[in-house]
């Protein structure tokens, strides 16, 4: 295993760490060691992990531990303050339990972000490897599509499509994925181009490995460290995008709770019940903050050009 080169001019994907060799165990080990010494990133990981666990356990926590549900309304007991009897975090404008809605809303918000980011990553990898591996007309067509989608400003397109489709959480995941894969594709395609002529790929082909096997066993793992970095950034972006869409009126429709539509809906009642605004707002901010910190930490950790 040789060490990676220090110099390579690649205008668009200069953040490359792997330049065409099997990922050395060294790289991952080093990254892991660096992250362990990166306190903010570790804290972010811990908080996020807690959020994920709590959101995953939302039904249990809500129904069994606190014995509340996100649906039951009590219009005559709405806007209850924090620490009200029976409603630890008060009630919302329809008298529904705020804690329970935050729990279930977190499930949806985090779910959209995770699924959306992974799905667009998956599409991006698959299309990128295909384009890079086969080249020629396939590559031209795919790159035409990528450039086209990249040239259309994202937010306007997102607004138009969500306005048309009235999204449920699941359709929103698909919309995010369909609009979000092009960056990954560019990256993966460029990497594939440079990797596919390397010795280990050529020799794999020589011993008769199928194209699919070469693509997904030999090439994809090589670009993985690149993608892991963008993944957490993408998740943070999707959580913000979901809340922004709610603000514009095109987000996930009630009664399904998300942190985004809870925050936006509560802005009307900010004076009367500030906790209805601050809790979902805080949860969004902390989650995205952690995701961005992790992305940042991962990038530094995986970048061999930044010496310790």
């Amino acid at each position: 295993m040789s060490k990676s080169k220090l110099f390579e001019v690649r205008p668009f994907s200069k953040r490359g760490s792997s330049d065409g060799f099997r990922p050395s165990l060294n790289l991952w080990q080093k990254a892991l060691r660096r992250i362990r010494h990166d306190r903010p990133t570790m804290v972010a990981f811990t908080i996020l992990g807690m959020f994920a666990v709590i959101a995953f356990m939302a039904p249990f926590l809500s129904d069994v531990v606190f014995q509340v549900d996100p649906v039951t309304q009590d219009l005559r007991n709405n806007y209850q303050p924090l620490f009200s009897p029976g409603h630890v975090l008060g009630t919302d404008e329809l008298g529904r339990d705020h804690l329970s809605r935050l729990l279930y809303g977190g499930q949806i918000s985090l779910g959209i972000a995770i699924l959306g980011a992974f799905l667009s990553l998956g599409i991006g990898i698959a299309v990128g490897v295909f384009a890079g591996y086969y080249g020629g007309v396939v590559d031209d067509l795919i790159m035409w599509l990528v450039t086209t989608l990249n040239s259309i400003p994202g937010l306007p397109l997102l607004i138009i499509i969500t306005a048309i489709l009235s999204p449920s959480p699941l359709t929103l995941v698909f919309i995010f994925a369909v609009l979000g894969w092009t960056g990954t594709t560019r990256l993966v395609r460029a990497e594939t181009y440079s990797i596919k002529e390397r010795e280990f790929v050529v020799s794999a082909r020589a011993i008769g490995a199928s194209n699919l096997r070469i693509m997904f066993v030999h090439i994809v793992p090589n670009v993985f460290s690149l993608l892991i970095i963008s993944l957490s950034q993408a998740m943070g972006g999707l959580i913000l995008a979901e809340s922004a869409l709610s603000f514009l009126g095109f987000g996930v429709r009630p009664p399904t709770a998300t942190w985004g539509n809870m925050l936006n809906g509560a802005l009307d009642y900010a004076r009367r019940a500030p906790h209805l605004v601050f809790l979902p707002g805080l949860l969004i901010t902390v989650t995205v903050f952690c995701l961005y910190l992790i992305g940042d930490g991962l990038r530094d950790a995986f970048d061999p050009k930044i010496a310790d």
């Binding site: 943070g236 809340s243 603000f247 925050l263 802005l267 707002g281 969004i284 902390v286 903050f289 961005y292």
Partner: peptide
């Protein structure tokens, strides 16, 4: 460390809420 956390924090708030 401070700038890292602060820069990221500003970016992590929903912009419509921060604006309001």
């Amino acid at each position: 460390r401070f700038s890292r956390i602060f820069a990221v924090l500003g970016d992590a708030m929903p912009v419509f809420w921060l604006g309001l």
